[in-house]
Design a protein around this nucleic acid. Sequence first.
DNA 1: GGCATTATGTTATGACATTACAAGTTTGAG
DNA 2: CTCAAACTTGTAATGTCATAACATAATGCC
Lengths: 138, 138
Amino acid sequence: MSSARATSARDLTRNQHLVLGTLEKAESPLSAYSILDQLREEGLRAPLQVYRALDKLLEMGLAHRLESLNAFVACAHPHCHKSGLIAFAICESCGQVSEFSDDVVRQRLDDWAAREGFVTKRTTMEIRGACRACASAA
Amino acid sequence: MSSARATSARDLTRNQHLVLGTLEKAESPLSAYSILDQLREEGLRAPLQVYRALDKLLEMGLAHRLESLNAFVACAHPHCHKSGLIAFAICESCGQVSEFSDDVVRQRLDDWAAREGFVTKRTTMEIRGACRACASAA
DNA sequence: GGCATTATGTTATGACATTACAAGTTTGAG
DNA sequence: CTCAAACTTGTAATGTCATAACATAATGCC
């Protein structure tokens, strides 16, 4: 069932499947520990079980880490792996996260890196604020 | 000497001054705890003393937090507060951090936010990789 | 089978950050 | 001046996030 080199959602280990499922059901980012809490009845007991699953999911692009929250979300577009640069808009009021990408931004950062001789491995971009609904409610 | 409403580097409390000085002397980002360690002889004893100072320094724009490292740096351009969006390029090999800003990127993100009705409070942008020196050495 | 690789489980520990409380200092209104 | 409000500081305890180290089992390959 599960291979040693899973590369798609259909080929996940049990723990990876459980963790991804939890993220997908959630409406906001989840910390590793809250994922763990939700999976105790499934037999998970230690943080490392969650962190290991998350590592693989991040690697496969099925989940993302939000650095400014120390939390994780399922990828909103798990099918199209098009973008090497994903931006997140995080509503600090309701917790919702929007995922988007912008080729112009990516290009500008690539240009900067090229000028500086910087070899980019990974870019994180997180906008914190209030989504439309929460901003108009306030 | 220190007022209740410090707004510039010349008007810092003792702890703020010590913390900022430590960051300025450092060649790489420092965690709050390593700042604390360096300031034990100056009488600092608890993490909170450092975190409180850092909060103020961040507020004043004299220091920045690197979310992907859980660490802090002194602002490289403490004089010109021009940019509302600062990007960081972090070399994972030598630890050096370059601070830059790009008006086109800022504009694109502002446009996105305007379209979505998202009210931006704070944006973090961090590029991880290898600086020119380390990339060519590798 | 025998070996390498990968996944899993468990305990303990390390690293980062905040809560809650107590006490001293500065500021300014009256 | 004097009091009270606002702010800063110190300290201990705790909470939250993440990994190291070790043991075991499953899997793929020759």
